[in-house]
Simulated scan of single mutants.
Amino acid sequence: MELTTVWFALIAVLWTGYFVLEGFDFGVGVLLPFLARGEADRRAAVGTIGPVWDGNEVWLLVAGGATFAAFPEWYATLFSGFYLPLFLILLALIARGVALEYRGKSDGTRGWDRAFFWGSLVPALLWGVAFANIVRGVPLDAGHEYTGTLLTLLNPVALLGGAATLLLFTLHGAVFLALRTVSDLRRRAIRAARVLAPVALVVVTAFLVLIRSGALSWVAVAVAVAGLLGTVAATAAGRDGWAFAASAAGIAAFTATLFTSLWPDVMPALDPANSLTVANAASSPYTLTVMTWVAAVCTPVVLAYQAWTYWVFRRRLTGEPPRAALH
């Protein structure tokens, strides 16, 4: 197998890890003002992601770094053409990170909770808009420069993609809260999951059917739908762990559909002659070889450390005592 194919697959895996892990972080933030009834509830909700949210964001940093190193032409076109949406995502992630770090150190938490909400909702929506445009294709010239405008990116397919990721991540956050909390907060999270799951199923399925391409992507669509159906069934049965696993599988299959539909392009153009592919956007074979050895050594260490973190902080939270929010 060529190294360009290997690195395309690895980047797909990194985005899958990011969406599965950061997805429930986004979902918790979006649901916070709707499910929490007091400071104890808000503290418990934030505490479910407090020890892990910054580690989850590492997947995004590594995905961006891997894209820059393995496919520099893709990176350059993507970050220049999608500059404003990606800048808004960055601002939202900064606001969310500051809110999570400082809400436990301030007397008043309402302002930080609003920042947490908007810092979760904006990326959950815009990641879907961005990836829908990447898979659908954008106007590129012969030099692989983006020639459209911001309004070009806000097309109906992209907006449907944004709605799909927002619903998918919010549902994922609801089942995560049900898994990690107790009492009334858990019951409200279960009710939210039961309401969100059918809506997410319809919107996500419509989006994936619209953008899929090739037999392999049909398999991924089927797995995504099965994952969402499993989330519905497990939530109805009160099986929190199975609901979370099914939701995670649905998000993984959703991401797989995006990348299998994209292959062998990395940035398709409306004029196929101007598309960026794994061949014309890749770094030199030497660079890819060095990256492969580094990834082979470092990846197991990172995965082991993150798995250990989740194991240590696996218990359900009640919101008490006060320092449980982030420490």
Rank of each mutant, 00 (worst) to 15 (best):
118 W>A: 06
142 A>G: 14
181 T>N: 10
149 T>S: 15
203 V>K: 04
157 V>R: 08
168 L>D: 12
226 A>H: 09
155 N>P: 09
227 G>R: 12
211 I>W: 13
201 L>G: 02
157 V>H: 11
205 T>Q: 01
227 G>A: 07
118 W>I: 04
225 V>M: 12
242 W>K: 13
210 L>S: 08
194 R>N: 08
152 T>A: 09
238 G>N: 08
149 T>W: 01
208 L>R: 05
213 S>R: 14
217 S>F: 05
139 P>H: 06
170 T>G: 14
200 A>L: 05
187 R>M: 08
143 G>A: 12
134 I>A: 05
174 A>W: 00
191 R>Q: 09
147 T>N: 03
231 T>K: 11
210 L>E: 02
123 P>H: 05
136 R>P: 00
158 A>R: 04
175 V>G: 05
199 V>S: 03
194 R>Q: 14
219 V>L: 15
210 L>W: 08
181 T>V: 10
157 V>I: 14
183 S>L: 00
124 A>I: 10
198 P>D: 13
202 V>D: 09
135 V>W: 00
174 A>G: 03
152 T>W: 10
188 R>P: 08
115 A>W: 03
142 A>S: 14
215 A>R: 13
224 A>T: 13
147 T>P: 04
153 L>D: 02
117 F>R: 11
126 L>V: 01
176 F>N: 11
195 V>H: 07
146 Y>E: 00
211 I>H: 10
185 L>P: 01
213 S>E: 15
215 A>E: 09
148 G>Q: 06
146 Y>S: 01
115 A>S: 03
127 W>E: 07
133 N>V: 03
225 V>L: 15
174 A>L: 00
232 V>R: 13
168 L>E: 15
159 L>T: 11
202 V>M: 12
156 P>H: 05
116 F>I: 09
180 R>D: 04
139 P>Q: 03
121 L>Y: 05
201 L>C: 05
219 V>P: 12
127 W>L: 12
183 S>D: 15
148 G>A: 07
191 R>Y: 01
131 F>P: 00
191 R>L: 11
157 V>P: 03
155 N>G: 11
231 T>F: 12
234 A>S: 07
141 D>N: 14
200 A>T: 14
125 L>C: 05
220 A>V: 04
209 V>Y: 09
164 A>Y: 04
199 V>L: 07
238 G>R: 03
115 A>M: 09
135 V>G: 02
125 L>K: 00
190 I>W: 10
150 L>H: 00
149 T>R: 13
223 V>I: 15
200 A>Q: 00
187 R>H: 12
179 L>S: 08
177 L>H: 11
132 A>I: 03
232 V>W: 12
207 F>H: 15
140 L>F: 07
190 I>E: 13
147 T>W: 11
212 R>S: 15
122 V>P: 00
134 I>G: 13
229 L>N: 10
171 L>S: 01
139 P>M: 12
164 A>R: 00
230 G>K: 10
121 L>C: 07
221 V>M: 01
222 A>Y: 09
228 L>N: 02
138 V>L: 03
213 S>C: 06
156 P>S: 09
232 V>H: 11
129 V>D: 09
193 A>C: 05
177 L>I: 14
233 A>W: 14
193 A>K: 06
176 F>M: 10
141 D>T: 04
234 A>F: 01
197 A>S: 15
190 I>N: 13
156 P>K: 12
237 A>G: 00
127 W>Y: 08
213 S>I: 02
141 D>W: 02
185 L>S: 03
158 A>G: 01
146 Y>Q: 02
186 R>N: 06
